[in-house]
């Protein structure tokens, strides 16, 4: 089985589905000739031609709006928005159109759309190129939001997303794009939407994270005392959340730490801690704690690592929650 990076696995998923389904078209800024700003779509235009892998102008509202039109007509467009910060101009189309047409037409018109978005910090880029806006899109009913962080999950979940009958936002953690390789099957397989993954089993405390932060959590776990048993959950799907896996774990451990890149206030971490309060209150041995980006604008390169949670911060939070 070939070893692939996250970038290669996503490219392989697109290749797999474009070969299988002629309705699939990729479109975005520089996705064709240049293979995308992160080279995720490298080689696809050569293989499938400029009619199916389409270079667009810098025009996010137009890209998203015309992709929605394609999807309404029964095609399977996959627009790439080059950086998560550039979703701003496309927000109106995504939230007021894509997310709502099924409901507004009572199922007569649907939008099977997969929006690929390089997401998150850790590549020394400034704001708009390092943000984590997932909670904004979760808050709008009608969208599904994914953020896998391993090559295997990314390929399987992207194939699930493209075949999903509803609009899906597929966030790709840039920091992980080329950080490691793992075995990824060349053929067709899917990883279901809505299922979290237990990365490490443990009994004392549950750590919940997603995206590149999963690897910071793993690093934190390495530095903890041997007798501290930590369960680490990678959400993989941000929306819909996998209540079962999360609650089963916290019911067992009685303690939870949520780790995310996004600013703390009104975030997915806020939502997760509310869910744990509602569903696991009698099992909690300590307040649920959040280790997050700060409530400030994503800083540029030199301050980036002071903003993003890292292993020492996460480890300290785990220790405090366990000692409570």
């Amino acid at each position: 089985m070939p070893q692939m990076t996250l970038v290669q696995a996503i490219n392989n998923a697109l290749d797999t589905e474009m070969a299988r389904d002629e309705r699939v078209v990729c479109l975005g800024e520089d996705v064709g000739l240049n293979g995308g700003v992160f080279r995720v779509t490298e080689g696809l235009q050569k293989k499938y031609g400029p009619d199916r892998v389409i270079d667009t102008p810098l025009s996010e509202s137009g890209i998203m709006g015309s992709s929605i039109g394609l999807a309404m007509a029964g095609q399977r467009p996959i627009p790439e928005i080059q950086f998560e910060g550039f979703m701003g101009p496309a927000y109106d189309q995504l939230v007021n159109h894509a997310a709502r047409f099924r409901n507004r037409t009572r199922g007569a018109i649907t939008v099977p759309l997969t929006v690929r978005v390089p997401w998150g910090g850790g590549i020394h880029a400034p704001e708009f190129h390092s943000d984590s806006p997932e909670a904004i899109y979760v808050h709008n009913p009608g969208l599904k939001v994914l953020c896998p962080c391993t090559p295997y999950d990314a390929k399987g979940m992207l194939l699930s997303a493209i075949r999903d009958p509803d609009p899906v936002i597929f966030f790709e953690p840039k920091r992980v794009y080329r950080s490691f390789r793992e075995e990824v099957p060349e053929g067709d397989y899917t990883v279901p939407i809505g299922k979290a993954k237990v990365v490490a089993e443990g009994t004392d405390v549950t750590v919940i994270s997603w995206g590149a932060m999963v690897f910071q959590c793993l690093e934190a776990l390495d530095g903890l005392p041997e007798d501290l048993s930590v369960e680490l959950i990678d959400l993989r799907t941000i929306h819909p959340l996998d209540f079962d896996t999360i609650c089963e774990s916290v019911t067992k451990t009685g303690r939870a730490v949520i780790v995310q890149e996004a600013p703390k206030t009104c975030s997915m971490a806020s939502e997760l801690s509310a869910i744990l309060m509602e569903k696991c209150f009698l099992h909690l041995q300590a307040p649920v704690q959040r280790v997050c980006g700060f409530d400030t604008v994503m800083p540029y390169a030199k301050l980036e690592l002071q903003y993003l949670p890292d292993a020492p911060r996460i480890a300290e939070a785990i220790k405090q929650v366990v000692a409570y």
Binding site: I68, G69, L70
Partner: peptide, 23 residues
């Protein structure tokens, strides 16, 4: 494919529908 309440936002949808037909 609909009346739409956000002024102007329907215009790229029309482009997409035409694009789909041509595709």
């Amino acid at each position: 494919f609909g009346g739409h309440g956000i002024v102007g936002a329907q215009t790229p949808l029309g482009a997409g529908l035409a694009f789909a037909a041509r595709y």
